[in-house]
Computed example of a mutant assay.
Amino acid sequence: MTILHQIDPIAFSLPAFELFGRQFHPQVHWYGIMYLVAFASAWWLGRRRIGAGRLPGVDRTAFGDLLFYCMFGVILGGRIGYVLFYAFGDLVADPTMVFRPWEGGMSFHGGLLGVLVAAWLWARRQGLHFFDVMDFGAPLVPLGLGFGRIGNWIGGELWGRSTDVPWAVVFPKSLPQQFWALDDASLRALHASGALDAFARHPSQLYQAFLEGVALFALVWLYSMKPRPRYAVSGLFALGYGVFRFLVEFVREPDPQLGYLAFGWLTMGQLLSVPLILLGLFLLWRSRKAPVLAPQPPAAKAG
């Protein structure tokens, strides 16, 4: 028996209001809430690492500035990366679409590039080595990735490929067009009869939440608990994410506007993950003769 996905992506609605002659009906989506939870988890974990002196010379106020920089990097980079990597044709037809993120479309790889730029600017202002900042921040990222994938799951988007595994899920948005006008009750009745089982798919969002979120967090966090050579923690994160993402793409439905890029299986997600895998291997290799940044817990204030 398959599972029918019927989760309301809207957490709650705000009172309607009129502005400049237009009616607005604000709605708060679970996906947006997951972004807030992701940033909150990075803030909490980062303050713990700052308190342990894992980025010497940086206090919690300066860390707050870093997180602020990276928040903008994630949002701007994620959106720009999506339209460049996955919707370039739409961008050419309508350049203003880059300013409408609420229509959907964020890219991890674009968000990563945005964070790298933001962290580089912050590190330069602080007079710190860029990869000391990256090694500090890498363990803060995976949980946020996991929360983002849970947001995808709640929204019933970015589903997997067709399958008959026992935990297969029927996503209403992935059904053929003749089912789109049916209400929830009708869909439930069809599902109960088994008529929708042929359209069941892998819940790849949950696979990614576990691999990119839980597993990658455990791997990188535990590895970073002991002082490591410069580049090592960043290298492990890049390698781990790249491998996990490359593997899960085998059961994730490719973006419809792109399809498979080569060999009947290569997706854009896999293509973009290869440089991360290579970068991770290079950084781990380079870390062999790199210095180790010893923790320097902040001195207790006299009082």
Rank of each mutant, 00 (worst) to 15 (best):
E212H: 09
W180M: 15
G137N: 01
K289G: 07
I154R: 08
L222I: 12
L271C: 05
H25C: 12
Q126W: 05
A185V: 12
A215T: 14
G160I: 00
H202C: 02
Q257K: 13
L175V: 04
G259V: 07
L36N: 01
W30Y: 15
L206G: 02
M34D: 02
W265A: 13
W102H: 10
R286D: 04
L4D: 07
R228H: 05
Y260M: 08
F99Y: 15
L113I: 13
Q205F: 01
C70Q: 01
V248L: 03
Q208Y: 08
V233W: 06
D59V: 11
Y231H: 10
W153R: 03
R47D: 14
G148Q: 00
S273M: 06
L182A: 12
V170S: 01
S273N: 07
D65S: 15
Q27L: 12
D197A: 12
A189C: 03
Q208H: 12
L19G: 13
L222R: 12
L190E: 06
V117I: 04
H191C: 07
A294I: 08
I3F: 15
P229E: 03
F68Y: 02
F199V: 10
G53M: 04
L258Q: 11
A232G: 09
L14G: 14
G303S: 15
Y82F: 14
L158I: 15
L196T: 03
D132W: 07
A62H: 07
L279K: 10
P297S: 09
V37E: 03
L272V: 06
W159D: 01
E103Q: 13
A185Y: 06
A299M: 13
V170M: 13
G89D: 05
G148M: 10
L67R: 01
A40N: 05
I277D: 04
R49F: 12
F99D: 06
L91T: 12
L272G: 04
L175T: 07
R149H: 10
E212N: 02
F63P: 03
G146A: 00
L121Q: 04
F12W: 13
G151A: 00
L121R: 11
P291C: 11
D65L: 12
L91H: 04
D135Y: 03
D59K: 10
L91A: 11
L258M: 12
L158E: 02
L143P: 00
I7R: 13
S287F: 07
G148K: 14
F68N: 07
F199M: 05
A119E: 00
F217E: 11
G81L: 08
A294N: 07
A38H: 09
F24D: 15
D164H: 08
G156R: 05
W102R: 11
A290V: 10
C70H: 03
L55T: 11
F237R: 00
L14V: 10
K173H: 14
S162M: 06
P275Q: 07
G57I: 06
M134I: 00
R161N: 01
L182T: 05
